[in-house]
Design a protein around this nucleic acid. Structure first.
Length: 343
DNA sequence: AACACGGGGTT
DNA sequence: AACCCAGTGTT
């Protein structure tokens, strides 16, 4: 593209920042430069939409106002605060990093040290360094990558490390040394609200006259998308086994590959002696590349094997409950016209 | 480089 | 029904 000459780089920065300052969304984490708050927001926003993160962000900061509370929290509290957001390794890494920060005696203030925190990769390190500390490191998330791919009419697959390096190098020349945090956020904001994947809003884009893809009329084709494998369909059954004020459940151990520490409803395979009763509901749920149909049944326990617990229904809101268990219990509550279980 | 990891809003 | 989201860690 044509922005490589200094004069054009300045025009690029000026247009982008002017646009951002005028049209940026008022987001909770944009009201502070406290590295703790910026960090929490960046972790929450990993692969997570802004609208989904906002209510979690507010609640999380109330419950864990600083590194100290986060570092010393019981893990179940942490998981309960994160339940429903997904990617639960983020919550665990958050606490590991909080302990590191305490050991360091404060939040690390340079890019390399921030990058070493658990759960902080290239993007997040650059985002924190630039937004909280004003350091000049380009932060390329999915939005920024899309914007830059279009600006340069990038032909390569954006999944490849070569192409990513090329885009980072490009961003490194563009980034405004005086306002790196704003610059990074502006690029991401542009990708989030204007340079969107499907129908980019080129007429209102402050950069459209500098955009190579636009000049070639190929803005909708770029960046190149690689087809992903089609999801697998899986049917599963869940059992609702109750006694007064209690429900039978089990907890995933730390060894569980996913959802470690979360409480689940039993499945028939785990309880061979269970007597399956009436069907309560069917709901669907997607995890990564698998589409599940969960069939929920009432049942009675027979003999209760090791590892199962009669969980108090009152405590359901205090423990980390998997989303599938929550959905099943919501079905049950709807059916009984009673809100004991639910949110 | 490829894969696993959650969940849900948007198109 | 895809697509994809302010990605990271592991293999």
């Amino acid at each position: 593209m044509h922005v490589e000459r200094p004069i054009e780089v300045r025009a690029f920065r000026q247009r982008l920042l002017a646009w951002y300052r005028q049209s940026k969304r008022d987001l909770p984490w944009r009201r502070s430069r406290d590295p703790y708050r910026i960090w929490i927001s960046e972790i929450m926003l990993q692969q997570t939409r802004v609208a989904a993160a906002i209510p979690y962000y507010e609640r999380f900061l109330e419950r864990f106002p600083s590194v100290l509370e986060l570092a010393s929290a019981p893990e179940p509290d942490l998981l309960a605060a994160w339940a429903g957001l997904g990617y639960y390794a983020r919550a665990r890494n958050l606490q590991r990093a909080a302990k590191t920060i305490l050991e360091l005696g404060g939040f690390p203030r340079d890019h390399a040290s921030i990058r070493e925190l658990a759960g902080v990769g290239d993007y997040t390190a650059a985002a924190i360094a630039s937004i909280a500390f004003g350091l000049k490191h380009p932060a390329l998330d999915g939005n920024a990558i899309r914007v830059l791919s279009r600006l340069t009419a990038e032909q390569g697959n954006i999944a490849s490390s070569v192409v990513k390096k090329r885009l980072v190098a490009f961003a490194d020349r563009l980034i405004d040394p005086r306002h790196p945090g704003e610059f990074n956020q502006a690029l991401m904001e542009l990708g989030a609200v204007v340079c969107v994947p499907k129908e980019p809003q080129c007429p209102v884009c402050p950069l459209h006259r500098l955009c190579a893809a636009r000049l070639q009329g190929r803005e909708k084709e770029l960046p190149l998308k690689v087809p992903r494998p089609s999801p697998i369909e899986v049917e599963k059954q869940l059992l609702v086994i109750q006694k007064p004020a209690r429900i039978l459940a089990w907890q995933r151990t730390a060894l569980s590959r996913r959802l470690a520490g979360f409480w689940e409803l039993p499945e028939p395979e785990q309880l061979p002696a269970a007597k399956i009763g009436a069907k309560i509901a069917v709901f669907r749920h997607t995890i990564v590349n698998t589409n599940y149909s969960f069939h929920v049944y009432r049942a009675s326990a027979g003999r209760v094997p090791k590892g199962f617990h009669w969980l108090s229904t009152k405590k359901l809101n205090e423990v980390p409950l998997s989303t599938t268990a929550k959905k099943a219990l919501a079905c049950l509550a709807r059916r009984e016209g009673d809100l004991r279980y639910g949110e």
